[in-house]
Design a protein around this nucleic acid. Structure first.
Lengths: 222, 222
DNA sequence: TGACAATTGTACGAATTCGTACATTTTTAA
DNA sequence: TTAAAAATGTACGAATTCGTACAATTGTCA
């Protein structure tokens, strides 16, 4: 008996309730892991109740998987948003590395969830189709840029796209995943906000040196 | 009433009991993490009982810290064993990277324990003195080799030792820490036994390209 | 040898936490 | 309007698991 719209109006809103639960779940799982997380704690962080978590996601593992996949979906979505238009291979490669660096840096929960998966041998990820597509897309992306650069004589030939992707991923992932133990050992020279700007250039430079035919022309620093 | 030695012979052997407990603890903690590990399961893996764990290590967290430090001690010990005698800067740098690559590869529990620490913001490591010394030693090591190479004109100047150490560590750590999710996405081209040989050369090559004044002279591959 | 300290075994108490039974409200469909 | 389905709140049962009380055994030292 409310004003606008006459069909399918729910005061109840399952979709936003689910999204709310997933948000809280990622926040907890990414920090505490599967076993360290308490369902009651997730419930406390939501606008709803524990009862709803079980209603929509079945059990703890079901919620964990849903949270993991939702993070992958977000990553996959952003990945396709990079704008390479008007860039040659060298510039495109730079942009790709910069994007990857920034994405990891701004999504530590994503990094943490994957780190947790790895400590458990990726058992929950192995059965998911989503990850396979995401990763394959990333490899194709770097592969195309690389092939273009080789064709133009800017990049040295002989490198495998999957290894290039591995390298970029390793540097960008480790930068976030191990920032705590690294900072504990050396202070925050690298991981402070200013330090990360320098470090970002360093990482880009490393990748360019790895792929360029004439690496000397790569460095940005004086 | 046994043969040799007359003083302080114990049928009881606290040191080996402790070592036995630590071994089992590392095996569990590295896979399941602090909260995922069950003390009863560790006890089952030892030759002794749960009672002994509490007797020697106080509580679960005490055991966790002891396990973490014991892994660091082992790493620190091996680190000092590398033989650089007779090597010039270029060869020494290669050997350092190879050693680091191999060490991580052969000690996945070490890698896993650090990964766990990072998901928890390294709270247990932050108060430990051991790690600081270990890391500082590693930086000094690469710093000396680098300075030597710069002095001889083999390496390009301007790089910070801590960033060089970061790079080597990132590549070697990620290779082990993320092997599961990476394999799940691309098969085991990189992480199979044969794949790792190629990959090891790739990683060494990346580091050499990053530091060499004339990177072209670096590649081992045809 | 006898007193005292170090080491180990057994059983269990107390707290935590996953998941559900049951009741209630909200929305759709006939 | 009314019956059925979807969504939600409340309280609690059952299992797990950390840590300990208590007792017993083994070794040192005077």
């Amino acid at each position: 008996m409310e004003k606008e719209a006459r069909r399918t109006r729910w005061k109840q809103d399952p979709d936003s309730v689910k999204a709310d639960i997933l948000r809280a779940a990622v926040a907890e799982f990414s920090v505490k892991g599967l076993s360290g997380t308490r369902i009651d704690e997730i419930a406390r962080r939501t606008a709803t109740s524990k009862r709803m978590i079980y209603y929509y996601f079945g059990d703890k593992v079901g919620l964990y998987r849903a949270a993991l996949e939702s993070e992958y979906h977000r990553a996959r979505h952003q990945e396709g948003e990079i704008d390479f238009s008007g860039l040659d291979a060298v510039e495109a490669m730079r942009r790709l590395v910069e994007f990857t660096f920034d994405f990891h840096r701004h999504h530590p929960e994503f990094v943490a969830m994957i780190a947790h998966e790895n400590t458990q041998a990726a058992v929950h990820l192995a059965e998911s189709e989503v990850i396979r597509r995401l990763n394959q897309g990333a490899v194709n992306q770097v592969g195309e840029i690389y092939a273009d650069g080789v064709a133009r004589g800017q990049f040295r030939p002989g490198l495998e796209p999957v290894r290039l992707h591995w390298m970029i991923s390793a540097l960008c992932f480790y930068n976030v995943s191990n920032r705590h133990t690294f900072s504990a050992g050396f202070g925050d020279t690298i991981h402070s906000d200013e330090g990360q700007e320098t470090h970002r250039r360093f990482v880009v430079d490393l990748v360019m040196r790895a792929v360029m035919a004439q690496p000397e022309a790569t460095s940005t620093a004086p």
